[in-house]
Design a protein around this nucleic acid. Structure first.
Lengths: 363, 363
DNA sequence: TCTGGCACTCACCGCCGGAGAGTGCCAGAG
DNA sequence: CTCTGGCACTCTCCGGCGGTGAGTGCCAGA
């Protein structure tokens, strides 16, 4: 019988954890994810591939419990992974599904075809992506709508409103229309505003909105002398258009929330209610997602790690997507901590890449 | 002891129902709505104000059961109203709360103040109203977004897209921006479109969009000879703007769905899930609401009456709201069949009136 | 250091029996 | 003919009981 060397004490975890223990934890998490039931020493000894007796397994389980990797719901009920256990599993033990597995390829094909259907309309793109994520994972899909505009400047139009307010309408990317009410320094006439719009359109049409924005900021700080009054005013008004007001908060598209209802760990109506209320409030969820825009790749929050009580029994898997090499938004899924990470992670990863591709001007 | 005359056989119900029976049904429904528990003959004899012995009550209950007004969950469990029972109660037995009760007045004040906050922005108005309905009834609030445009024509703008498509941007009511992609009969140049827009704006600015629409239809049928080519083309393009495409389906604003989670009759996670999925699908709900736009006043669907299985245990109370004396949308609440109708009905009624008032141009 | 053995602890299930609520029916009173 | 009190019956709910099965912790021996 081949015995695995024990106590290898390899330097991969913060706490020393024998190779055997890691292997057992891995099997335990896998079994628990598959069946959703506490795993006993007997099963573990049979399925771990380690050829250890249940008694030995029990000893190791006691260690793992002490380290906070697993816990037992009650005295005689086998073990269940804790958030820490999942964390170690995800970080070090996961057998990642190769990105080119048939399933992922199928997903990729499906996504490309769906995304093509709505080519150009960013909003529809996000909705479709969210639906796709939820459909393919059977959990809740999530795509943030970027605060920062991107795409090609097409046309701007200003309309004077009462007082010192102007309605600005910006067409981006051939079909997306954004509008915003600006408070300006003085009342402008229709003719003046028309002039501004003409000036801006002739200067910026076709350019990337992000770049336009930066250019506007630069122009603003430039000395007034180098340009005439009209230009200066026009730039001032246009700049207003890009300053994010507190009212237009970030937002996200959620899909398939109802999928979450069928998970046993959320069958508690009260927990469910709190979760759905959090979805409706949006604030907490957005705050969590904001943290993920910074990170490069897939980000995972397991259970209590998120810091939000409502997400106690949930995990969030996210990946940022980019437009013009700039990270502008996040997508991901929300599901029970007991989810098939090795399947979900590549799905989220590739979806983010596909969405990035679909959003980029020339792909 | 004053005895109420029996078997009055007054001609108010389709089925003959003695006054006593009606009184008992009324008390039963009231008690059940209050406590949520099956009502027994003992309680009923005590609380009906009729001075009947429990045994007599039992006889009458047997009659009511035969008529399908009540049913007993099991042999020894008192009676519960059926949809038919609620229906009779709502139609004939309800002690309506006077519209000027302090509570309704308080609501009225609260609404007026909230609605003032968002004056002008129709979308925000609907959201606020929906929230208000859900907040005040502790159920789910619902406001449809009218398909038909209304308000004052402010400004239109056309932008040529690739192929024979035009992006139309219509500003209504000083701040609402609607945009739509039109398929037109041939490719127009930027200059042509500009001309169209100028023509239309000069003709229609300030007019009611509904009227503009009708006028456009009239002009279209007029012989071409009476106007020049440009005008004719402009009108043709503008008319396209108002033809509702299948893609821009009607929509509604839902608020406080999570309130529904705490009703015992919906604690069944599976039912809950189906209900929430129906909310997300929108189609069924919209179809139901469509039927209510026609009706003048408050409309009520009780349980299975709606015809949608997911609403089996729910009632929907709606009232249409109007703009310029035209019924354009519906608002209402969704809650368990066991809801305080006498409270909810006036609330929905008055909310519809207030929203109508807030939406009308000069109020 | 690993293992088999053993006592122990729980959750789960079905069963039972009593309490309580409410019913249906019947016979008698008004 | 209607109403009422009485009575037997039904059904739910609840707590207690004991058996079963799964799994544990610990200990002594290989």
């Amino acid at each position: 019988m081949a015995r695995i060397r024990q106590d290898a004490n390899s330097p991969q975890g913060e706490v020393q954890l024998s190779e055997r223990a890691q292997q057992l934890l891995k099997t335990l998490v896998e079994l628990y994810i598959r069946d959703g039931e506490p795993v006993g020493s007997r099963t573990l000894s049979r399925d771990s591939g380690l050829d250890l007796s249940p008694a030995t397994v029990r000893n190791i389980m006691a260690d793992l419990e002490e380290m906070g990797m697993v816990r037992s719901p009650h005295t005689s009920a086998g073990r269940v992974p804790t958030a820490r256990g999942y964390r170690l599993f995800v970080d070090a033990l996961l057998t990642a599904k190769p990105m080119d597995s048939p399933e992922v390829q199928r997903l990729q094909r499906e996504m490309l075809s769906k995304l093509n259907d709505v080519q150009g309309d960013a909003q529809a793109l996000m909705t479709t992506t969210s639906n796709l994520l939820s459909g393919v994972t059977h959990m809740a899909g999530l795509v943030t709508i970027p605060k920062r505009e991107f795409g090609a400047w097409r046309h701007v139009e200003f309309l004077p409103l009462s007082d010192q307010r102007v309605l600005a309408i910006l067409v981006v990317n051939e079909r997306e229309v954004q509008n915003r009410i600006l408070d300006v320094d003085r009342a402008y006439t229709q003719a003046e505003l028309q002039q501004f719009a003409n000036y801006l359109n002739s200067h910026f049409a076709g350019k990337d909105v992000g770049q336009v924005r930066q250019q506007l900021l630069r122009e603003l700080s430039r000395t007034r002398e180098t340009m005439n009054d009209m230009m200066s005013s026009a730039i001032q008004v246009a700049e207003r258009m890009f300053t994010v007001s507190e009212s237009d908060t970030a937002d996200y598209v959620l899909a398939g929330e109802t999928n979450l209802m069928e998970f046993a760990e959320l069958s508690n109506v009260d927990k469910l209610r709190q979760l759905f209320e959090a979805f409706g409030r949006k604030r907490d969820i957005l705050h969590l997602l904001d943290q993920c825009v910074a990170a490069e790749g897939v980000q995972i929050f397991i259970g209590e790690e998120s810091g939000y009580e409502v997400l106690d029994e949930c995990s969030v898997v996210t990946a940022p997507y980019r437009v013009n090499d700039e990270l502008v938004g996040v997508l991901g899924v929300i599901g029970p901590t007991r989810m098939a990470y090795e399947r979900v992670i590549p799905i989220v990863d590739i979806t983010a890449k596909l969405l990035s591709a679909a959003l980029n001007p020339r792909k």
